[in-house]
Nucleic acid binder design. Structure first.
Ligand code: FES
Ligand code: FES
Lengths: 133, 133
DNA sequence: CTTATTCCTATCGACTTGATAGGAATATAC
DNA sequence: GTATATTCCTATCAAGTCGATAGGAATAAG
């Protein structure tokens, strides 16, 4: 239950790898072999991380990826959301009054509470906590 | 991300229904039409809830399901676990030393922290909180 | 013996996920 | 300006999961 996708786990490993480089860049190939992540899969992940701004990418020869912010300012929540979207236990967390009970729906409040608990935890941990710098 | 299966949502609705009956029994058919849950799907859910002991079932004519404990003593965690198993963001939460870093694996500690946060929230809420009795 | 019900097993289509493949775009180096 | 290294884009695939359905066996009441 509540299992995390391989994609997100890979993303965290990749981000941790880049964090240890302290701003220097690495190619997808390097990260792939160092972290044991399938290259083509990793490429997609890095592109996704780039569109969110967590990493910067430079094309062409001598290109590669670099981290764009200090590891201690990158929350785990931002990585998870970049991969699999926002934490949303049930659909109706973002649309009030979806069911018959309207705005006073107890189940909905319960699930929102869960979302808040998860967001709070993921938002309180940063890349630095897991990068082992 | 972290979406909850329809099965679990159905299970909670079914349990809430039974909770409102305060120990009286209801058939799967009744719950099905009252809560809008596909009958055959619901049957499986109730059987599963029974094996865990959250509900009791009686076969044959005049049979049905009844709740076995007071709603305030049934945690949401117990329902969720009955449906989809224990909270386990990554496989290695239950097997230490799975990766190269051994017991000091920082990612693992991070995921275990998430599990604990989720378990704490789900364990702190009970059926009573959502049954609206 | 009929009827109502739980319970067991099998199956199905749709969707998701992890992974692969091929190649276009882009930048460097010589 | 050609070769090379790299990011980036799009398509595809096999395997698994999920929600749902179907048929019927076991059981109990009357
Ligand atoms: S709004 Fe989602 S269950 Fe009521
Ligand atoms: S034990 Fe799971 S990542 Fe180290």
């Amino acid at each position: 239950m509540f299992s995390v996708s391989a994609k997100t786990q890979y993303a965290i490993r990749a981000m941790a790898h880049l964090a240890r480089l302290e701003g220097r860049s690495a190619t997808a190939s390097e990260i792939s072999s160092a972290e044991g992540i399938p290259l083509k899969f990793l490429e997609g992940i890095l592109t996704q991380l780039k569109t969110v701004g967590l990493v910067g990418g430079e094309r062409g020869k001598n290109g590669g990826y670099r981290i764009t912010a200090a590891p201690e300012s990158v929350t785990m929540l931002s990585i998870v959301e970049a991969m699999d979207g926002s934490v949303k236990p049930v659909q109706c967390v973002e649309t009030a009054g979806a069911c018959a009970q309207g705005g006073a729906c107890l189940p909905r409040k319960f699930w929102i509470g869960l979302k808040d608990a998860i967001d709070a935890y993921l938002g309180s941990r940063t890349l630095k906590d897991i990068a082992e710098g």
